[in-house]
Design a protein around this nucleic acid. Structure first.
Lengths: 225, 225
DNA sequence: CCAAAAGTGTTGGAAGTACACCCATGA
DNA sequence: TCATGGGTGTACTTCCAACACTTTTGG
């Protein structure tokens, strides 16, 4: 009789303008690792699909529902949980934090955004899980337009530049980047303008998801860099 | 108390020269789906890592040990197994069939290669799993040099061409393809020649894995098409 | 008028694509 | 000598990379 338990965990990335990338962590209020920070997650119910389980856990532990969510990898080393054998199906999500207020709920003492370069010590093998998610994000943002899930629905071009620079971690030529993105015709211009801060105000754009999907079906590939 | 069981399955691709791509299937000799063809796999032992479990199952059910093996996706829909809730961590593998003779062993009545365009009806959701694996193979072969695992260690250039054409499913310009591959400097020329069949014999090449790995660490990207 | 960010074009080089002929072998 | 597949070069086009000045706004 098999004794393995199945859990799900979520690595949810959020981006705060002109700042580092963040991930969502919860503070455990049960043993083991009580008091430590960890990725939100928990055991899958017997009558619940895996996707549903992550959505539920994210809801319960942080009150959040990501705009983008997909399966990342399944971690199953024998000793990754000190109590029992637990394998974890990990999902990778993106949200715009300004649209989602966190509230820790069941099972979590607290839920917070942490800058990825100032993470606390994490429970279990969550450090390794995070690394894998980050590397997936870095790769994937270069060939699928998923970055828009991290921005406001209407954003100035410079937000997009900053986002890519932050995630990829190198500086990009503004002019070439803009030309490339624009050439895909996936951004609709709004007639709004952002006038925050100093300098010339920028036009706001909107990502046209429908257009991307119809192009993608015809074999179009998004690609940056 | 959670009742979910954890299994692993493997989608193992094999390539037979000048022929379609094949996958390895086993014939079930227990219910459910007794007598039907299915992907090799089975329940994970309590004290066994996931990778070890797939390797064991492939060994037990087909007597095979793939040259390349990596995790593909975890399938966990509630009703995918008629008996109990079973989630399956699926791996995706590549072998050169001429180096591995199949022999069905424990749990399997038979093990055979099937051409991917003449697959029998499959047990469980294995059809969907296969589709996902195939699409991963098609994508991945274009940006990682994994195709060499499907060929003989020493192969004439035309085998590589055929392989890519078979997998991607469109015809490639021989001259440009060769130029591209050669430009990476990852193929070592042997001084052997293949004289099978008619026509001018071709030189045999060997993929230089070490060289690829050292380049990859320095940020080199393999890319075809 | 100064500071700050937005907006825009041109040019040279590299890489990709299209394309056709000669070569070595066995029958 | 013919049929079969192996081996190679060139010209055109497209894409990418490098690069700097002008515009709009607020203070």
């Amino acid at each position: 009789m098999q004794k393995i338990k199945v859990s799900v965990d979520g690595v949810v990335f959020g981006y705060f303008e002109k700042s580092a990338l963040h991930i969502l962590l919860i503070q455990r209020n049960i043993e083991p690792f009580k008091g430590k920070w960890a990725l939100p997650g928990g055991l899958v119910h017997d009558d619940e699909d895996l996707d549903a389980a992550v959505l539920r856990e994210l809801q319960e532990e942080a009150g959040i529902r990501p705009d983008f969510l997909e399966q990342l990898y399944t971690f199953g080393k024998v000793d990754r949980d000190p109590r029992n054998r637990v394998i974890s199906v990990v999902y990778f999500g993106l949200v715009n934090p300004s649209y989602h207020k966190l509230h820790a709920d069941t099972d979590a003492a607290d839920a917070r955004w942490f800058s990825i370069d100032q993470l606390p010590e994490l429970a279990f093998d969550h450090e390794a899980i995070f690394e894998k998610a980050l590397s997936r994000l870095r790769t994937k943002i270069q060939y699928e337009p998923i970055g828009f899930n991290l921005l406001n629905t209407e954003f100035p071009f410079s937000d997009l530049e900053d986002l890519y620079q932050t995630i990829i971690g190198e500086s990009i030529d503004r002019r070439n980047f803009r030309k490339k993105i624009m050439s895909y015709g996936l951004l609709d211009e709004t007639n709004k303008i952002r006038k925050e801060g100093s300098g010339r105000p920028g036009k706001l754009f909107k990502f046209n998801k429908e257009k991307y999907q119809s192009l993608a079906e015809k074999g179009f590939y998004f690609e940056i860099k």
